[in-house]
Write a protein that binds this DNA or RNA. Sequence first.
DNA 1: GTGTATAAGTCTCTTTTAGAGACCGCAACG
DNA 2: CGTTGCGGTCTCTAAAAGAGACTTATACAC
Lengths: 121, 121
Amino acid sequence: MRDMLDQMDLANCPVRHVLDHIAAKWTTLILLELEPGPCRFNALARSLPDISRRMLTQSLRDLERDGLIARKVFATKPPSVEYALTDLGRSLLGPLCALIDWAKASAPEIATARAAFAAQA
Amino acid sequence: MRDMLDQMDLANCPVRHVLDHIAAKWTTLILLELEPGPCRFNALARSLPDISRRMLTQSLRDLERDGLIARKVFATKPPSVEYALTDLGRSLLGPLCALIDWAKASAPEIATARAAFAAQA
DNA sequence: GTGTATAAGTCTCTTTTAGAGACCGCAACG
DNA sequence: CGTTGCGGTCTCTAAAAGAGACTTATACAC
């Protein structure tokens, strides 16, 4: 299993790169937010109140850059911008949900561990 | 799917908390490194050369705190410390590998998207 | 007995990253 | 004529990460 990450110098490992994204913590939330359907910038900002517009822009660019979401500009006045999952982005939802399910299932156990750790420290 | 994250105010959502951990980017590497068996501090440091000792300590503490790994001190001279996956920690490897597999499978597509993005930007 | 290495970290300093929140031009709406 | 909504950007500050020297004590080589 460890060798899942070998095969390339750790530095520019594609796997690591993906993990860094998941890691980005906001990107996963954005992907989940887009799952029901396309969404516009300010709508996303409203749905994710605790992400600053600055980070939202940045995260969206990252996701777009990697082809996980598509950005479409409509020539309305004022122009509106719609973000939507691509097929690639959608394909990530599966594994992501597996992780979320694990998190939900393990949350109590983690809470217990934390309490124990805090008590003894 | 989005409602997987609702049910609690975004702030102290257990799921989000787990994602933040995966997010921590070093923690996943550590978990994978421990998969074959227990490992000691400096051995980990050697296996993960691009993580500073400072961050290694911190990440290990985080994982220990959440009950994903166990820290055992041996009263040798000098005392040595061994880190091992707990059952809980081991149970995370499944979903984590799903994600890694996705990453490996999608890497070429992501690379293509990146190239396209760079070209047009 | 002196020098080096190991053990598991810690401490400090600098750089990077994230967050808060004001600001932009522009058009519709009241 | 002032406000709101659009999709962001800009600046300034606060928090986090990285680099790398330092610690205490033991063991081994020379």
